[in-house]
């Protein structure tokens, strides 16, 4: 290969690197939108702020559109560049993470809808455990994205281990919330409707943590080529 060909190759590659950088930036932006949606949905629930809940619902269209734009961009990069190796893993992981983020947006929207359905009724019990679950889930989400952006195997593995343990904590809190609410229903069946609302909120928050875990697993795939889902692993490096 002569110098001119090398230069052309290297210019094409630089452009592709820039586009991969843009893809990453889009995901970071989308993640910011989703974190805010979860935070706002839980705050609105706690403060009985219907306007704010409605805003979360309206904003979900924006999140959905961002997801589709990222998807379209990934498809375009695959079509145009026929990516290989680390590039391919990066684009595939981005595509999947955009999907996970979109679902987290739906959970925020779900919480906002429940909050509106509750109308003027105060929550059945003081909201302590659910916001705690929410804080943990949002923190997990942030760190799963950090793991993805780092592309550093050791860092990603550390985050995956931490997140697994935090996901267990969120699950424990969810079980506790369910138990507490069941007790309130048993003590007075008239509590059933309000208990069900909170049960659904807690369920949505628990799912956010699960999705954050999925994102960390995609970050692991990007960094190592290992496909992981919970306790199941396929190592693409071995036949």
């Amino acid at each position: 290969m002569n110098e001119q060909q090398s230069n052309i190759l290297s210019i094409g590659r630089q452009e592709f690197d820039r586009e991969l950088g843009r893809l990453e930036a889009e995901l970071i932006l989308m993640s910011g939108l989703v974190e805010k949606a979860i935070f706002d949905a839980l705050q609105a629930l706690k403060n009985r702020d219907i306007d704010r809940s409605q805003k979360v619902i309206n904003e979900d269209d924006h999140i959905d559109k961002t997801e589709l734009e990222i998807e379209r961009y990934c498809i375009e990069l695959i079509r145009r560049e026929s990516p290989m190796a680390g590039d391919l893993r990066r684009i595939v992981a981005s595509l999947q993470i955009a999907g996970e983020l979109e679902r987290i947006g739906d959970y925020a929207e779900g919480i906002a809808k429940i909050s509106i359905n509750m109308g003027s009724q105060p929550p059945l019990k003081e909201l302590i455990d659910i916001p705690r679950m929410g804080d943990m889930a949002v923190s997990m989400l942030k760190r799963s994205l950090e793991a993805f952006i780092s592309r550093d195997e050791d860092f990603v593995r550390t985050i995956v281990v931490e997140l697994e343990s935090e996901d267990d904590e969120v699950d424990d809190l969810y079980t506790k919330v369910q138990g507490d609410l069941m007790e309130l229903v048993k003590s007075d069946p008239d509590n059933a409707e309000r208990a069900t609302y909170l049960m659904w909120v807690a369920h949505n928050v628990e799912r956010v943590a699960d999705r954050a875990m999925n994102i960390a697993e995609r970050a692991l795939f990007q960094a190592t080529g290992q496909l992981v889902s919970g306790t199941t692993t396929i190592d693409t490096n071995v036949e």
Binding site: R13, P83, M84, A85, R89, T236, N237, E239
Partner: peptide, 25 residues
């Protein structure tokens, strides 16, 4: 030297990665 899935999906040698992703040609 490896399976296609490994060489094109997750190369072990950084030079392979550079070659299959068009960084060296």
């Amino acid at each position: 030297y490896g399976t296609n899935e490994q060489v094109f999906g997750n190369p072990k040698d950084e030079r392979t990665e550079a070659y299959v992703t068009g960084r060296i040609g």
